[in-house]
Lab assay of single mutants.
Amino acid sequence: EDYYQILGVPRNASQKEIKKAYYQLAKKYHPDTNKDDPKAKEKFSQLAEAYEVLSDEVKRKQYDA
């Protein structure tokens, strides 16, 4: 799945936009606030993985290549 789609940001998003999108979605899908939703944990880990790659310039360049 596309990391940009997961975070809901365009491919040319700035680091600030990526961070903002991640924090909004992380708050929304955090397992502690969605105890009754088994998919929230999965969504949250996808968000974390996408953010880890896109927030790191080197990893992001490799991902975009």
Rank of each mutant, 00 (worst) to 15 (best):
S14V: 04
I6M: 11
H30Y: 09
F44Y: 15
P10H: 09
A50W: 01
N12E: 06
P38Q: 10
P31F: 06
S45E: 09
A40C: 08
Y4E: 01
N12F: 07
P31A: 10
F44A: 09
N34K: 08
Y23N: 15
A26H: 15
F44D: 03
T33C: 10
Q15N: 13
S55W: 04
L54Y: 00
A26K: 12
H30P: 05
D32T: 11
K20I: 15
P10W: 04
K20M: 15
D36Q: 09
L7E: 00
T33V: 14
E42D: 10
L54E: 00
T33F: 14
E52Y: 09
L47I: 15
E42W: 11
Y22G: 01
N34D: 08
D37V: 06
D37S: 08
A13D: 00
Y4A: 01
K27S: 15
K19P: 01
Q24N: 13
E49N: 07
Q62A: 14
E42S: 09
D64L: 02
V58F: 11
E49W: 07
A13W: 01
Q5G: 06
R60F: 01
K39W: 13
G8Q: 10
Y29W: 10
L25N: 06
A65W: 08
G8P: 00
K19D: 15
A48Q: 14
A40I: 13
A50S: 03
P31M: 07
D64A: 02
Y3N: 02
A65V: 09
A21T: 04
D56G: 02
Y29F: 13
Y22M: 04
V53H: 04
D32Q: 10
Y4F: 02
Y3P: 03
V58R: 07
Q62M: 09
K16M: 15
F44I: 07
S14N: 09
D64M: 02
Q15G: 10
K59M: 07
V58Y: 11
D37T: 05
A26E: 09
V9M: 04
Y29R: 05
S45P: 04
D36V: 06
L54K: 00
Y63T: 03
P10G: 12
F44H: 05
K41G: 09
K43R: 11
V9W: 00
K20C: 11
K41P: 10
Y4H: 01
I6R: 09
I18A: 01
D37M: 04
K35E: 08
R60N: 02
K19W: 12
R11H: 15
A48R: 09
K20H: 15
Y51W: 09
P38Y: 07
H30V: 05
A13G: 04
I6F: 05
D64R: 01
V9E: 01
K27V: 15
Y4S: 00
E1W: 08
D32H: 09
